[in-house]
Design a protein around this nucleic acid. Structure first.
Length: 886
RNA sequence: GGGUUCUUAGCUCAGUUGGUUUAGAGCACCUGCCUUACAAGCAGGGGGUCGUAGGUUCGAAUCCUACAGGACCCACCA
């Protein structure tokens, strides 16, 4: 069989993915005898397209799922997508606009029809894309947050929270997005520093000469002023107490009020109060019973109440106001000023604080278990630093505005009666019954009920995701939720810790009396090599599917993971994918080597016994390390361990040790052992590189129908004491041998001796037995023609010194005859001597310090003593060497 | 303004309760090799006074303080 020297992912990826699907390997059912391992996907927006953040996030989930599956757990990774109320509605509106249709010309029903059509056509592309990455989701369980039973659950929860008093309706100051024309929660408002102006405006004092000067960044809101406020302790303004001032341009008379809220140092110490358009002003207004004049409409333009500039946008008006005030002589001065302004997370529109009637979740009680169980690590955050962030947010949490003035989403199940009363019920029928009870009016009909027009915040429903995907709200005791909940780990971005993670925890305790997941793994943000966030406008985000085509899914997956410390940003460099692809190629070629061998079952090659035992030990060691990394979600380190194991230990050392001379057959025992090792290596590689490993799994041996690596048994680390002892000796021996080989190769390099030229080797050692086992390995790896032990220095030879685990410095000689460069040799030795002497000084300093010997733990002192002895012996050996050189 | 966190080789990062660390890895770099598994490769090599200044300690990259610089989160001073 002739195989290409390059691994070709395109030929194998689709094939295996299809077979995995056909064999139903991704599918999971509750299994009483098995341990569940559950991950619910952070549902991407239904309109979403795969980006690098998804790639990272889902690769990690797939790695964890695949490993758990191989460990024999009932692994279940639930996929799905989110209706993403505001984002999707915006997209549908834009799409309609392109077709010449305005949202305002449509009824709710018409609009939703378009939206659903659109969703059916373009929705969920992202899940198809995930398949290319190799995601082993249980596709039969794919959920959408707005499918009927999910919505039913969400409504049920709303009604329940309402009945328990956790949800209320209120007329409050909320964040208004004038572009989407909806209210937003506090979390959906991003504050950014902007360069603006501070306008100092004079307000005439009513009935007398003179004026007061206020400072404002928003002169357009002057039209809505209903008071000017001073600090009662402000010496400068004592004379103003009880007086009134005139609002410029519109000549409204407003009172001067006093409140300690006003900072005397800021601006002029006089504050204009616009209760309709500022949170603080609103509170002042409440306290001092001020009028509220709403001068800005829902689209951000000036309303009738403003009297001036009606219908014009607030930012245009800001400039016009300034000009007009200046012309009329009201402006005292204008200063440059930097302040923070709130922007809509979705539309980037500047948020207007606005008074309106909305639905809120009262957070105080709900938050208690959610906070407590994170603080006590019942729910564990990786990395732990996010715990603190979470705590502070939870402790200062505000009530949650959950109503949105949108159509795409779950409609609030509140119904208004003709008398203005509200009833909340899961269905309109129930609402009618309730209404009749409440009013005593049995003549009420459906026509008398008017359902609330608003829909719920997307996060109100996605917070329920880990429960609703298993239908745990409608049927709290169903076998699925009992088996799969709580889930094992949530893998998500820190950006949505408050939006989503916190709310899932909160709902989990409210509706399951249990956490939704044991661990939360926070990934970082994927950035470009310059550290910039990837974005469409910068064009610095590679197309994931193109990457997969170019480097193979395995290459991209490993590329992403090569440098992705939990919770830290990942500077994504395409070079990493290259490295991943190269790695796949390396594995492929290791296979090409193995499959090229003729096997001679008669032949027995004893010399390979050491190599085999050594690799076994090394594999075992790597496996222990690997499990440790996984247990701490050090995915990148885990990959690094497997990478080194495969590339260095398996390919560079082991295969080179046992590789027969070209043309010679390999003995049966070695061959079997090698195939077995290859299988083990493939297994531990599989979570990271599912495709190439499945391909090789089938190439290595004939397989039964259901024998796939995806469901192969995960290797178990043997960590018995006996085993550890045997392994340690072997590994130490191996290490010394690699050191020897490295030194010989180095000698070749510096002397420009071809690797093809066999060299004799002499060893001066008190413990030759260390090397006996490895004789033939040294010969093979370093192309050594003969090994002889000697007690004397060998003349005319290049030399090097190695300290074995026993602490004896052994000297190695490679006779080079005339080729020897004495000066270079001396230089090398002197350099080495200098290092060892320096090292010895630092060790001696410690050991000569009585307080160190007294206070340091015994093991540490012993270790230092050994280091001292080793170094001394080594220094002596080097000195001898130098002396003999004359 | 409050809080969290980071600063280790040219780059990206490890360094797990201070002690096998005069500091490791990958990439990049340099040198030599197209050696019948692999040039998407092999072999070898150079490179860091651990942000700065103090302090604690027998011992500090690791703990404390200050400073400098960066990142992020939260916050209603117009």
């Amino acid at each position: 069989m002739t195989l290409s020297t390059k691994y070709n992912p395109r030929e194998v990826e689709d094939k295996w993915y299809q077979q995995w699907l056909d064999k139903d390997f991704f599918h999971s059912e509750p299994h009483p005898d098995k341990e569940a391992y559950t991950i619910v996907i952070p549902p991407p927006n239904v309109t979403g397209v795969l980006h690098m953040g998804h790639m990272l996030n889902n690769t990690i989930q797939d790695v964890l799922t695949r490993k758990a599956r191989m460990e024999g757990k009932e692994a279940c990774w639930v996929p799905g997508y989110d209706h993403a109320s505001i984002a999707t509605e915006a997209k549908v509106v834009a799409m309609l606009k392109e077709r010449g249709i305005e949202k305002r010309d449509l009824t709710r029903e018409e609009f939703l029809k378009y939206a659903w059509e659109w969703k059916e056509k373009y929705g969920g592309i992202i899940l198809e894309q995930l398949k290319k990455l190799g995601a082993s989701c249980d596709w039969e369980r794919t959920r959408f947050t707005m499918e009927d039973h999910m919505t039913e659950s969400v409504i049920k929860v709303f009604v329940d929270l309402y009945n328990k008093g956790h949800i209320y309706q209120g007329f409050r100051m909320i964040n208004w997005d004038p572009e989407a024309k909806t209210s937003l929660s506090d979390e959906e408002v991003l504050h950014r520093e902007v360069q603006s102006k501070l306008y100092y405006v004079n307000y005439a004092i009513e009935g007398e000469e003179g004026h007061v000067t206020i400072a404002t960044t928003r002169p357009e809101t002057i039209l809505g002023d209903t008071a000017v406020c001073i600090n009662p302790n402000d010496e400068r303004y004592q004379h103003l107490k009880g007086k009134r001032v005139i609002v410029p341009l519109i000549n409204r008379s407003i009172p001067i009020i006093e409140d300690e809220y006003v900072t005397m140092e800021f601006g002029t110490g006089c504050l204009k109060v616009t209760p309709a358009h500022d949170v603080n002003d609103y509170e002042l207004g409440q306290k001092h019973q001020l009028d509220t004049i709403d001068v800005i409409s829902d689209d951000g333009s000036m309303s009738e109440a403003a009297q001036l500039f009606v219908g014009e946008d607030r930012f245009v008006v800001r400039k016009k106001m300034a000009k007009k005030l200046e012309e009329a002589g009201f402006i005292a001065k204008i200063e440059d000023y930097q302040n923070k302004v709130g922007f809509s997370e979705r539309t980037s529109a500047v948020i207007e604080p606005r008074l309106s009637k909305q639905w809120f979740v009262r957070m105080d009680e709900l938050v208690t278990p959610a906070l407590e169980n994170v603080l006590n690590d019942n729910v564990q955050f990786y990395p732990a630093k996010f715990k603190n962030m979470y705590r502070i947010w939870m402790e200062n949490i505000h009530n949650w505005n959950i109503s949105r003035q949108l159509w795409w989403g779950q409609r609030i199940p509140a119904y208004y009666l003709p008398n203005g009363e509200v009833v909340v019920a899961e269905t309109s029928e129930e609402a009618l019954t309730l209404a009749k009870e409440k009013t005593g009016n049995t003549g009420l009909t459906m026509n008398d009920l008017k359902q609330d027009e608003d829909v719920l915040d997307t996060w109100f429903s996605s917070g329920l995701w880990p429960i609703t995907v298993f239908d745990g709200i409608r049927h709290p005791d169903n076998p699925e939720i009992d088996f799969y909940y709580p889930t094992n780990v949530l893998v998500t971005a820190p950006e949505i810790i408050f939006f989503w993670v916190a709310r899932m925890i909160l709902y989990g305790y409210e509706y399951r009396q249990e956490k939704p997941f044991r661990d939360v793994y926070f990934t970082g943000i994927v950035r470009d090599p310059q550290g910039r966030k990837m974005s469409k406008s910068l064009g610095n985000s590679p197309d994931p599917l193109k990457l997969i085509t170019e480097y193979g899914a395995d290459g991209v997956r490993t590329g992403m993971l090569f440098s992705s410390p939990a919770g830290n940003d990942l500077l994504f460099d395409i070079k990493l994918c290259e490295q991943g692809r190269n790695f796949a190629n390396k594995i492929w070629n290791a296979f090409r080597l193995v499959q090229s061998w003729q096997v001679d079952t008669e032949k027995t090659e004893q010399t390979n016994a050491t190599a085999i035992a050594w690799f076994e030990a090394r594999f075992n060691q790597a496996l222990i390390e690997l499990e440790d990394h996984f247990s701490k979600y050090r995915i990148s380190d885990a990959l690094q361990t497997v990478y080194k194991l495969t590339k260095d230990d398996f390919c560079s050392w082991y295969l080179e040790m046992i590789k027969p001379t070209y043309g010679d057959p390999i003995d049966g025992m070695t061959y079997e052992a090698t195939i077995g090792f290859f299988e083990k290596v493939i297994k531990v590689l599989h979570p990271f590189m599912p495709f190439i490993t499945e391909e090789l799994w089938h190439q290595l041996r004939e397989r039964d129908d259901n024998d796939y690596v995806i469901v192969a048994e995960w290797p178990k680390a043997e960590d018995s004491k006996d085993r550890a002892q045997v392994d340690a000796t072997l590994l130490q021996g191996g290490k010394a041998v690699f050191d020897v080989v490295g030194n010989i190769r180095n000698t070749r390099n510096s002397r420009q001796i071809s690797p093809k030229e066999a060299l004799p080797l002499f060893i001066k050692s008190d413990t030759p037995e260390v090397y006996h086992q490895f004789d033939s390995i040294i010969q093979k790896l370093a192309n050594v023609s003969s090994i002889e032990f000697t007690n004397e220095k060998v003349e005319g030879a290049d030399s090097f010194i190695i300290t074995t685990a026993q602490g004896k410095p052994d000297t190695f000689f490679i006779p080079l005859g005339d080729a020897i460069d004495v000066e270079a040799e001396r230089e090398k030795l002197e350099k080495e001597l200098k290092y060892q002497q320096g090292f010895l000084i630092s060790v001696n300093k410690k050991l000569n310090n009585a307080r160190f010997v007294e206070n340091a733990p015994k093991e540490v002192v012993t270790m230092e003593r050994k280091k001292q002895a080793d170094a001394e012996a080594r220094v002596q050996a080097i000195e001898e060497q130098l002396k003999s050189m004359g």
